[in-house]
Amino acid sequence: MASSIRKRRSAIAAGAEAQALASKVLTLQADAGLTIAMRMPLLMQGALGSSRGQREAAKAVSEKVSAVMESGFAASQAAAMFWWGLALNPLGNVDLAEEAAKVANSTLEPFSKRTRANAARLTGRRR
Rank of each mutant, 00 (worst) to 15 (best):
R8Q: 11
M40S: 13
V25G: 03
I5F: 14
A2F: 02
L96R: 00
F111C: 05
R6G: 09
F73E: 00
V25W: 05
S3G: 14
F73H: 12
A67T: 01
A22D: 07
A75T: 13
E56G: 05
E17W: 04
A22V: 06
R52W: 09
P41D: 03
Q19V: 15
A75F: 03
Q29G: 15
M69W: 10
F82L: 11
L26K: 14
A32M: 09
R126T: 09
A47N: 05
R9T: 05
A16H: 07
S66M: 13
R125P: 00
M40Q: 13
L88H: 09
Q29Y: 00
L122C: 06
R126M: 10
E98C: 02
G15V: 03
L108R: 02
A79L: 07
S71L: 03
S50G: 06
L34Q: 15
R126N: 10
L28T: 12
T35Y: 06
D31A: 10
A101C: 01
K59S: 14
N105F: 08
S3F: 08
G33Y: 01
E109S: 10
P41A: 06
A37V: 00
G46L: 04
F111I: 05
K64Q: 14
L91H: 09
I12C: 07
A2C: 09
A97S: 09
S71W: 03
W84C: 08
A11K: 15
Q29K: 13
R121D: 11
R8S: 09
R126V: 12
M40W: 12
K59N: 11
T123F: 01
G15D: 01
E109V: 08
G53N: 00
R6P: 05
M1I: 07
M69K: 15
F111V: 05
R39E: 09
R6H: 13
A75S: 11
G72H: 02
I5K: 15
S71Q: 06
V94C: 01
M81L: 13
L108F: 01
A119Q: 00
L96W: 05
N93Q: 13
S23K: 13
S10E: 03
R127M: 13
R9L: 08
A37C: 03
Q54G: 07
T115H: 04
V103Y: 02
S62N: 03
A80D: 09
M81Q: 15
P90L: 03
V103P: 03
A20P: 02
Q19N: 14
T123L: 00
A74H: 05
A117F: 01
A79Y: 06
L21D: 07
F73M: 11
S112I: 08
R127V: 00
E109H: 08
R9M: 06
